[in-house]
Nucleic acid binder design. Structure first.
Lengths: 287, 287
DNA sequence: TAGATTGTTAATCGATTAACAATC
DNA sequence: TAGATTGTTAATCGATTAACAATC
């Protein structure tokens, strides 16, 4: 199965848009070697290297950015992608960097620079084709694959995650939700049934799971992490409030409510301090 | 009520630690003007300005960092604070930057530089007093106040947040959980009863709420945000997958599961690409 | 004192941004 | 062509880090 055929399908989204040949953005990757199909053919070709390079094997569509994309850029691509989907749903066919940047909450120079790391997918004087850019950003992020994810911990948070719609959408699917509590095992959450955490290794192996989500209490997180890593998981999203120790080559991202709240508190305090001079915040002391 | 008296209490945590005069870290801020109580008196004085400055008003303890703390540092302070609490619970009285940095998952130079923005709270040749540093970091973050928080949205996520223990702990308390669904109103979540979202303005006003958490569906988030802002909330933690528009002076932080997953997917893809050359990841295509 | 560790310096690195030549 | 907008340059800004003087 080609990657292109796994482009997250948006054809289920009702739209009444007037635009060219949308149905087959996905097919573009397949027959891009056929060349100059549309206005964009030049841009696609250029993505492989310098203008004028011929890219005879048609690999530009397969490997658009051999050089590394800066971390800060990677972190913003999902935001752009979301904004692009919103535009597409509104029937917008083409968008200028200024508009897209506004929708994403960044400035346009940053947006253009970020997108330039993926390749030259815009048209000077015109803007970016929304669907085409959706496809290119999706592909850069690895979302033309469908990543199976295992969620460990079926407490409040794990249940929230399993029921979270955005999870099942483009690029990810829940392979399993596991819990150590037998009372939890067997319950239906979203589309899956909670399994016992003892199945962790089997689920990872049989499901080809590369991404694990830790939604356990803090005390259990490191042990679960160790087991995920031993089983072959190399990407971990950690909701437990602990710093996980992982070997080289394993990627951990952390989502931490209390840290976010504390950062907000810092700024709130600073604002109060500015308003009241040296006196502490009314907002908090009143309560 | 003085700020110092609102230092988040840790006396409920069972500990068997051998250390000096712990009971009254909180009181330190009150009588710090009394001066040289301990080895640290010198450091405290210096925090106000250059070594040798006299700081006759004793304001150093009230305003330790007149200059701005870098954003990157602010974001790490909560991580240090957590590591410090863990050390304190283990009965550790003093910690070197190398150890604390390891516990927090950063390098020691960064840790020392970060802490230096708060003041000079270490002792050369010795390290940092754990309890004292807990207090100083807490104060820098504004956690010596107790911030009332309103959570809007009592769906899966809102319920998870309301039940989240870390929420109620040091520095924050849930003033209300609100939902637009009458079927939800009246249910008990953690320590509070779900109210109707119509009460939002009243709750914010009467509770002196400065921090709002948006845990609604994407479609409702901007409207809720607007109402929170109108009501006077200037710090917002947004779990809805939308870019919120807020006026100048309102601080929004975003927690977004699908963005984190997408960033993980990017790195996972890159690792597969490195392993297999140009071929796409097995992990995902197998499944 | 001698050993240890902080707080700070300065060099390096990466990210942001305005401005504009390229070009649609 | 003229107007518009991209992609890129270069300057600026902020963050990281190793190294070490200060000093406990």
């Amino acid at each position: 199965m080609s990657n292109a055929a796994e482009l997250p399908s948006r054809h289920d989204v009702p739209r009444g848009r007037a635009r060219h040949d949308v149905a087959d953005e996905a097919s573009r990757a397949r027959d891009v070697a056929a060349g100059a199909r549309m206005i964009r053919a030049g841009a696609v070709r250029r993505a492989a290297g310098r203008p004028g390079d011929e890219d005879p094997a048609g690999q530009s569509a397969e490997r658009p950015c051999p050089a590394g994309i800066p971390e800060a850029t990677v972190a913003r691509l999902p935001v752009y992608l979301r904004a692009l989907y919103t535009l597409a749903d509104r029937g917008v066919g083409t968008v200028a960097s200024e508009e897209l940047a506004a929708a994403a909450g960044v400035n346009s120079a940053k947006l253009r620079k970020d997108l330039s790391y993926l390749g030259s997918y815009g048209i000077r004087g015109v803007g970016y084709d929304v669907d085409y850019l959706v496809y290119q950003v999706s592909r850069a992020l690895g979302l033309t694959q469908n990543w199976p994810v295992v969620i460990v911990g079926a407490g409040n948070l794990g249940r929230a995650l399993a029921n979270y719609g955005g999870f099942v959408t483009r690029g990810f699917r829940i392979a399993a939700v596991l819990d150590s509590d037998q009372a939890m095992v067997g319950r239906e959450l979203g589309l899956v049934v909670v399994g016992h955490v003892g199945e962790l290794e089997a689920v990872v192996a049989s499901g080809g799971v590369a991404i694990g989500v830790i939604a356990t209490p803090a005390g259990a997180a490191q042990a679960v992490c160790d087991r995920l890593v031993s089983a072959g998981v190399t990407s971990i999203l950690n909701f437990a409030p602990v710093v996980l120790n992982v070997p080289e080559g394993v990627d951990v991202r952390k989502v931490d409510l209390s840290i976010e709240l504390q950062i907000l508190a810092f700024h709130a305090q600073r604002r109060s301090a500015e308003r009241f001079g040296q006196v502490a915040s009314q907002a908090a002391t009143e309560a």
